[in-house]
Design a protein around this nucleic acid. Structure first.
Lengths: 345, 345
DNA sequence: GAATTTTTGATGTACGTAAATCAAAAATCC
DNA sequence: GGATTTTTGATTTACGTACATCAAAAATTC
C-alpha cells in the first residue's frame, strides 16, 4: 500500500494536523518539526493522492479560450478541440468559456482579453497577434495573477507563462528542406503564399523556409511572398495569378491557411502534378489533396495536443506548479500520402 | 455544481442504495425502477466522478509487460518508458511487473506468457513473435479473462485485444516515397537492410517500401534484402560489403534496428554524403547522424506513446470499457534534421 | 516566574462514490 | 390470504486529503 498522511504522522511522531500544516505549508510549525516531517515524507516516498486532494478541495479551474473567427478549417478544428475539452470538463475539473474575436484584429483581441479578465478566471489561452496593445492586455492579466498561455501563435514580448504551439522557424526549415529535395533537378522558381506578414508564426515560417532552401537548393529563385489573409478565395486568386505569370513555376510553399484555394487553383489549371506543393495543417481538404497528389507534403501541428497541453499548463500554473517543458513541446508532424492517420482529422 | 448520486436519488424519487445498484449494475432492481433512475441520470447529465470512485474502490491494476532483451537502443528505450510508467504507477493506480525474454525466441516468450498468467494480472502487454505457440499462450490468457495488448510487433492470428504499434506496411511505403523523391535524378541501385525476415514488422515494411518505390521511382533497381539481425556489428559488415560491391549505390533503407552499424559503415567509407540513407527509430545515434547528414530521414514510432496507450487500453479492457480506436492509433513520425524534438529521445 | 505568544495535538466534517448490512415494503406464488 | 421471494430504503463505513476549531503544551518575552 502506498503511504498516507497517517503514515507520515506516525513515522515523524507528530499529529495529523502538523503533517497537514507542512504539506500545505500553512503557518505555525517550527523549523525542527517541519524538518522531521519532511524527512518522514522523504523516507516513506509519500506522494499526495491528487484525486483525493481534488475531491477534498472540490476545486474547479475556470479557464477562458480566445479564438479567432474566420472561414478556415484549421481554426475551426481548433475550436472543435476546445469544445471537446469542454465536454471533458467534468472529469478535468475545468469550466471553459470561449470568446470569439475577428481574425487579425489586434484591438478586438485586446478588448477580448479585458473581457476575459472581468471573468476572473484561473487562466487564459489565446491565439495571439503580435501587437503592443495585445502585449499590454496580456501583462495586465498576469498582474492580476491570471495564468496566460499563447496558443498556435506566440507573443514573445509579453509575460505569458507558456507557448502551446510549434517552433515555426523549424517548421519553415522543414518545409524548405523537403522542397529542396523534392524538386531535385527540376528548374524554375518557387513561390511562397502566406496569410499575413503581421502574424508572427507566418514570419517565422518564412524565415526558416528561406534558410533551409538556401542550403538544400542553393541558387533556386524564391518569388516575393504573397499574402492571402488565410482566406480560400483570396488564396485561389493569388495562386492563379502566380501560375499564369510563371509557366515554369517549380514549387509552392503555402505557410498559412486557406489551402482550399491553393488546391482549387492547382487542379483547375492542371498544374497540380508538375508543381511541387507543400502546405500546412491536415484538414479534410488537404488530406484529399495529399492523397490525390495535388499536395506533395503537409506539415501539421496537432490542434488537439495544443489545446490539451494549454489546459495542463494553465492548471499547473494556477496551482503554482512547474511544468516539464519537454513534455509540453508540440511536435512538427510531416505527412505524406503514405503515413496519414486513418481518421480524418 | 455538477450533479451527484444524491441528486439522482432525489430526482428519481428513490433511495441512494437503489441509485448505486443501477450505477454499478448490481442485481435486485425492477426494470421500471431502473428506467426511472436512468431517466434521472440522463436528465441531470450525471457523470460519475472517477476520482471519487477510484478513491472509494481503492482499485489497482496489476499489469505485466513482457519485453525482449538484446543490444538495441530502441528496445532499451521501450524498457525505459515502461520504467517511467512504473514511476507513475502511484498516480495511475497500476502495479507493473516487467519480464525479460531473449529476443526472437518464441518458446521463451510463450513460457513468459505462462509465467505472467500465474501472476493473475488484470492485463499483459507483450512484444509479440509470430509463432503458433505464442498465439496459444496469448489465447490462454484471454480465456482466463486477462486483457492482452501486443506492443510494437503484432500477433494477428491471436485473440489479443489490441495492437499498440504502427502500421508497418504504411511505414515502409512512407520510406519508399521519401527515397524515391530524395533520389531525384541520381542513378544507381537501392539496398535494403532488414533485421530478420522472420519478424512480421520487418516483412511488412519491406512490402510497403517495394510498392511505394515502384510508384515514386519506377525502374529503379532494388538489391536483394540483407538481414543484419538487428545487431550493429553485423549491420556494419553487411553495409560495408554492399558499399564495396556497388560503387554506384544511390540509397539504403534500413528497416530494422542496429543502425549504429549502418552509420559507422557509411562514415568510415566516406559515402555518407552521396548515399541517401533512410532508417527507423530515433535514438541518440540516429539523431546525431541525421543532424550530420549521414542519415537523410528517419521514421519513428514513439515508444512512450505506445507504452502509455497500452496501459490505457489494458485498464479500459480490465473494466470492460470500450476504447476509442482512433485515439489509440500510433502515428508514423517522419524526422528530418529540421524537425527533431529538442530533447534526445 | 508569571504572562504572552507560538507551536502542536485532538477531533470533526466535508468531498463523491462504493459497498455492505438489515429492515421494511412490495410483488409474486400457490 | 398467508407464505415466500424480490425489490427498495435507511444507514453506516471507508477511501485519502483539506480545512477548521479549540484545547493543551511548549517556547519566548519581560
Amino acid at each position: 500500500m502506498r503511504p498516507t498522511v497517517h503514515d507520515i504522522a506516525a513515522k515523524a511522531g507528530v499529529s495529523l494536523a502538523t503533517v497537514d500544516r507542512v504539506l500545505n505549508n500553512r503557518p505555525g510549525v517550527r523549523g525542527v518539526t517541519r524538518d522531521k516531517v519532511e524527512r518522514a515524507i522523504e523516507a516513506l516516498g509519500y506522494v499526495r493522492d491528487v484525486a483525493a486532494a481534488n475531491l477534498a478541495k472540490s476545486r474547479i479551474y475556470p479557464l477562458v479560450f480566445i479564438l479567432p473567427e474566420g472561414d478556415n478549417t484549421f481554426m475551426r478544428g481548433l475550436a472543435a478541440e476546445v469544445e471537446a475539452a469542454k465536454a471533458r470538463s467534468a472529469v478535468e475539473r475545468t469550466a471553459i468559456t470561449v470568446l470569439s474575436v475577428p481574425a487579425f484584429d489586434a484591438p478586438a483581441l485586446a478588448q477580448a482579453l479585458e473581457e476575459a479578465r472581468g471573468l476572473d478566471p484561473a487562466g487564459v489561452a489565446v491565439v495571439a497577434i503580435d501587437a503592443t496593445e495585445v502585449v499590454r492586455a496580456v501583462d495586465r492579466l498576469r498582474e492580476d495573477g491570471i495564468a496566460v498561455v499563447t496558443l498556435v501563435s506566440d507573443l514573445p514580448g509579453s509575460s505569458r507563462d507558456h507557448f502551446a504551439g510549434v517552433d515555426n522557424v523549424a517548421a519553415g526549415r522543414t518545409a524548405g528542406t523537403l522542397m529542396g529535395r523534392f524538386l531535385g533537378g527540376r528548374e524554375g522558381p518557387v513561390a511562397v503564399v502566406a496569410g499575413s506578414m503581421l502574424v508572427r508564426d507566418h514570419r517565422d515560417r518564412l524565415e526558416g523556409f528561406g534558410a533551409a532552401m538556401a542550403e538544400s537548393a542553393p541558387g533556386r529563385r524564391l518569388l516575393p511572398v504573397v499574402e492571402g489573409q488565410d482566406d480560400p478565395g483570396e488564396v485561389d486568386r493569388l495562386v492563379s495569378n502566380l501560375l499564369a505569370d510563371h509557366p515554369d513555376l517549380a514549387g509552392i510553399y503555402s505557410l498559412g491557411a486557406g489551402n482550399r484555394g491553393l488546391i482549387a487553383a492547382l487542379e483547375r489549371t492542371g498544374r497540380d502534378k508538375t508543381v511541387c506543393a507543400i502546405a500546412h495543417e491536415l484538414t479534410p481538404h488537404s488530406r484529399t489533396a495529399l492523397l490525390s497528389g495535388t499536395l506533395d507534403a503537409l506539415l501539421n501541428q496537432d490542434a488537439g495536443h495544443e489545446v490539451r497541453s494549454a489546459i495542463r499548463v494553465l492548471k499547473a500554473r494556477a496551482d503554482g506548479l512547474a511544468v516539464i517543458g519537454a513534455q509540453e513541446r508540440i511536435r512538427i508532424e510531416i505527412f505524406l500520402k503514405d503515413n496519414l492517420p486513418v481518421d480524418p482529422a
